[in-house]
Computed example of a mutant assay.
Amino acid sequence: MKTVMTNQAPAAIGPYAQGIIVNNMFYSSGQIPLTPQGELIEGDIVDQTHQVFANIKAVLAEAGTSLDQVVKTTVFMKDMNDFVAMNEVYASYFDDHKPARSAVEVARLPKDVQVEIEVIALVK
């Protein structure tokens, strides 16, 4: 087991790692729309989802993998009415490759953000 940490994504705000590699699989912690410096992106769901993907790409890169190796995502949203806008941004990061996905509405997310996404990916 290998812990993945990078300063190109926000530091964990609790007792957890940004990600873990086990048996050539990468498991990320949920990424929220914080900059690597810890500043909250307070824009709409589109702005927040773009920042989440910037963070995901950074932890994937540190793990030695990328979005095209993602096999599963889980999207947590504060308001399912934002699904269409989030989905348009999400789709822009996955061209022909379409990982399995779950999307759920939750009562509250850390720092009251609108979206949090976690991924599972193959490590080459």
Rank of each mutant, 00 (worst) to 15 (best):
I56D: 00
T49G: 13
H50P: 05
S66R: 08
K72P: 08
G43P: 06
V71Y: 11
L67E: 01
V59P: 05
S66W: 06
T49C: 14
V59Y: 06
D68P: 01
Q51L: 02
L67A: 04
N55G: 15
V46P: 08
A58N: 06
V59W: 01
K57E: 14
A58G: 07
V70D: 00
V70A: 09
A63E: 00
V70L: 10
Q48A: 08
L67M: 10
V70R: 07
E62T: 00
T65N: 01
A63N: 04
A54N: 13
G43M: 07
K57R: 15
S66Q: 09
I45E: 01
V71K: 14
H50Y: 12
V52T: 08
I45F: 05
Q69R: 15
D44M: 06
V59S: 04
L60T: 01
D47I: 10
H50S: 09
K57G: 13
A54F: 12
Q48G: 06
S66C: 14
F53R: 09
L60K: 03
I56Y: 03
G64Q: 04
G64L: 01
V70P: 03
D44N: 15
V71I: 14
A63Q: 00
Q48M: 03
K57P: 10
L67N: 00
D44P: 01
Q51E: 05
I56H: 00
F53N: 09
I45H: 06
T49S: 15
I56S: 02
